[in-house]
């Protein structure tokens, strides 16, 4: 059918993608609480880098098999590894454990609340490998740690736009400076929605599935409004007016009325804005004095919510119209 929606993708100009460097120390600092980690020894190893965002259980390595050893990953000694070590003779156990510590592993985690025996702890200190203890069950720890590491390793870009949460729909508002982004964001805050970030937004790709937006630490909770200056959104509007992070569900580009040649009047065609290889639904709203842009963005967000439920107003309307005309003709 020729009324099939066309699809168009705009790719974000933001280029400075960076996958962050994650050290053992940073990982510990960030997730110690959630993963119930305690540093047992090998403090000298905190500077080491975790080079792959996942976990390895070094059972085969302890058995002496080092082909395909995933040394870039956090090594977890669960009940199986620990009981294996216990069953070795003392000199054998020390030799095998030393070999593991001499590989280029980032760190060791001993799960289920076990302690490393003093002779092995000495090896760890000597090799400069940090060892942590957690009371968590091995599988639970692995799941939680993998999620935490994925988050830390997510590529991030900086988008020039403001981020607002409208009834659970995360909207990134873009537009040339002076087009009225901040006024529009203010209008949305006044309507009771929450600000994530003003003007500059950090966007993270979570496992290539979804985009998470947050404010840069320095500017968080603040906005710059022409003619007023910098305001603290929490102080002016209350804690309900802000949100730490939000998934990006919709990108809205504000454009001067005169610069737009053709405006989509029906919303049948789908447009996407690509950030970090993830496509987000995109619309362009023409700006003209007297137009209540905040209100328009609010409606766009709600329409997006409907689309998320599989309800495309424009498409449904048009299909109804076409079948009405067909019925009349026959």
């Amino acid at each position: 059918m020729s009324s099939e929606p066309a699809v168009q993708t705009i790719t974000s100009g933001a280029q400075r993608t960076n996958v962050p460097v994650v050290t053992v120390g940073a990982f510990y600092e960030r997730h110690a609480k959630k993963l119930q980690l305690k540093l047992e020894g090998g403090r000298g190893g905190l500077e080491r880098r975790i080079r792959e965002p996942t976990i390895n259980r070094p059972g085969l390595a302890l058995a002496g098999f080092y082909a395909y050893f995933a040394e870039k990953r956090v090594q977890v000694l669960g009940a199986a590894e620990q009981s294996y070590l216990k069953n070795l003779t003392r000199p054998q156990r020390r030799r095998r454990f030393r070999a593991l510590c001499q590989a280029k592993i980032p760190c060791l985690v001993v799960s289920r609340g076990f302690h490393l025996p003093p002779d092995l702890l000495a090896i760890v200190e000597e090799a400069g490998v940090a060892v942590f203890r957690t009371p968590m069950i091995t599988m639970k720890f692995i799941n939680a740690a993998t999620i935490a590491l994925e988050y830390d390793f997510s590529p991030t870009v900086t988008e020039f736009g403001s981020m607002v949460d409208i009834l659970g729909i995360g909207v990134l508002i873009r537009g040339a400076s002076g087009v009225g982004k901040s006024e529009c964001v203010l209008g949305l805050i006044e309507r009771g929605y929450s600000l994530v970030s003003d003007d500059v937004t950090r966007v993270k790709s979570l496992e290539g599935r979804e985009l998470m937006a947050t404010a840069p630490d320095v500017t968080r909770y603040h906005m710059e409004v022409r003619g007023i200056g910098i305001i603290n959104v929490v102080s002016v509007f209350g804690i309900g007016a802000i949100r730490i992070e939000k998934r990006v569900d919709l990108v809205v580009t504000l454009k001067d009325w005169q610069e737009l040649e053709e405006v989509d009047r029906i919303g049948l065609d789908r447009e996407f804005y690509e950030i970090l290889k993830i496509q987000v639904p995109h619309i362009t709203i023409p700006v003209r004095p007297g137009r209540d842009i905040a209100r328009l963005i609010e409606v766009a967000a709600m329409d997006q919510k409907l689309k998320g439920l599989g309800l495309n107003s424009a498409l449904e309307f048009n299909n109804k119209l076409i079948s009405l005309m067909e019925a009349q003709g026959s």
Binding site: S3, I266, L268, N318, M325
Partner: peptide
């Protein structure tokens, strides 16, 4: 045209 004056043609007409 086969589908008549539906949304897309209507938008073109108005343009």
């Amino acid at each position: 045209n086969r589908l008549g004056l539906h949304a897309r043609p209507a938008a073109m007409f108005v343009r």
